[in-house]
Simulated scan of single mutants.
Amino acid sequence: MRALFDLTHPADVHFFKHLIWLLQKRGHKVLVASRDKDVEIELLEAIGIAHVCLSRKGAGLMGMGLELLTRNAMMLNLARRFRPDILVGATGVSVGPIGALLHVPRIFREENEHGWLVRAMGVPFATYVMTGTGYRKELGPRHVRYRGTWVQTYLAPQYFHPCPDHVHAAGIDPTRPYIVLRLVSWGATHDFGLRGAETKDILEVVSRLSRFGRVIISCEGPLPESLQSHRNPVPVQHIHDLLASASLCLGEGGTMAAEAAVLGVPSVYCNPLFVGYMDALERDYGLARSARSLPEGLRLAERLLARPNLREEWRQKRQKLLSDSEDIVMFMHNLLRKALSS
């Protein structure tokens, strides 16, 4: 098998890395097309996945549109040279139309319900579209569902073993309480018209949560000078080691909120956008809480941190999620084989 992967976000690297390694271990040829966005290139190089960078994240809606046109042209040329048997991506905006044009099976995932533009550009061309637990929409006959949340492809116990030494090496004592605060750039297509917390709100969060432990900020963009001492010092490839030992994760992004929850860490998601997998983690498993803003999330976080035996309670909730879930990496591997044989 010759598989071409289209990875356009750091989270895509984590989602597909174990599938990539499995295919390579079994003797298949894999080529990764990357994108210069946030820490994606740094992450790929840190974990040893070779890649070809096709584009850099465009600024604004027009910039991202121009980037997509350029990227798709380069992806088409790359696919013609590599001659893949299958195209795999985190979205279908590139692998969908290019796979259809080249008559190559194409598989990608959908993770949130509000990405209507990305969905409209990819789903009509799909061989299969994968979604996980909590996804609310029906995507037609191409739609296949796996049991579990998408972050379990890299955080399920068979794939991730926390290493406190990585946290300690960065100057954080993993045996002492700390809270991870996640701030996002609000630059994705589904974020247009939305804005994150103001600096005064972030300072308030840090001040009030500091009585429960050290506050560590993971941020996609720059931080004010007044918050620099709280910036996360842990290398990008070890961010999940940091999360695994945290007392709580409070943040604007669904990815890190879900990651914390599936690791058994109390998680508060602060964002007005509905995300099905976060709703499932809250409603079905009690592993997360949701708020429409950071100040509202702060109040939820304070109430959670005041509860006795919080981490033990969350570890028990996590077990129910794990028992309800399947090995999503093997699910994807089998789906690739099915697409090739159909």
Results as ranks from 00 to 15, higher is better:
247 S>D: 15
73 A>N: 00
99 G>P: 04
224 P>Y: 11
175 T>V: 09
215 V>Q: 02
82 F>A: 01
198 E>L: 05
261 A>M: 10
241 D>W: 10
100 A>E: 14
140 G>Q: 02
313 E>P: 05
278 M>P: 12
272 P>W: 13
112 N>V: 10
179 I>W: 13
221 G>H: 07
151 V>T: 15
100 A>H: 15
288 A>D: 07
147 R>V: 00
269 Y>G: 01
108 F>R: 12
262 V>H: 10
308 P>A: 07
240 H>L: 11
217 I>M: 12
112 N>L: 05
194 L>I: 13
28 H>E: 08
342 S>T: 09
45 E>S: 14
89 G>E: 08
21 W>S: 14
13 V>C: 11
248 L>I: 13
105 P>G: 02
191 D>C: 11
334 N>S: 01
308 P>L: 10
195 R>T: 06
208 R>E: 11
328 I>V: 05
327 D>V: 01
306 A>Y: 05
103 H>A: 15
156 A>P: 02
263 L>D: 02
312 E>I: 05
41 I>V: 15
100 A>Q: 12
221 G>V: 06
3 A>V: 01
147 R>I: 03
310 L>H: 08
296 E>D: 06
305 L>I: 09
37 K>R: 01
167 V>E: 12
57 K>C: 03
288 A>Q: 08
220 E>G: 04
6 D>T: 11
63 G>Y: 12
276 G>K: 03
45 E>W: 13
58 G>H: 04
243 L>G: 00
294 L>V: 04
136 R>E: 14
174 P>A: 02
109 R>K: 02
144 V>A: 11
34 S>P: 08
340 L>G: 12
311 R>F: 05
26 R>Y: 03
33 A>F: 08
216 I>C: 01
60 G>E: 14
171 G>M: 11
242 L>Y: 11
62 M>H: 12
256 M>F: 07
100 A>Y: 15
181 L>P: 00
146 Y>M: 04
341 S>A: 15
325 S>M: 11
280 A>R: 00
70 T>V: 09
193 G>S: 13
262 V>K: 14
256 M>N: 06
281 L>N: 08
93 V>Q: 15
76 L>C: 07
227 L>M: 05
264 G>R: 05
86 I>L: 15
149 T>N: 10
17 K>P: 01
24 Q>M: 10
215 V>R: 03
294 L>Y: 00
243 L>H: 03
127 T>P: 14
297 G>C: 09
238 H>T: 04
89 G>R: 03
83 R>N: 15
125 F>Q: 09
75 M>Q: 11
50 A>D: 12
132 G>C: 06
123 V>M: 13
66 L>G: 03
30 V>R: 02
22 L>D: 00
322 L>R: 03
177 P>H: 12
121 M>Q: 06
199 T>D: 14
85 D>Y: 09
151 V>W: 11
43 L>Y: 10
278 M>I: 07
177 P>W: 14
108 F>D: 10
64 M>Q: 15
51 H>A: 06
72 N>Y: 06
266 P>F: 06
112 N>Y: 12
336 L>I: 10
124 P>K: 03
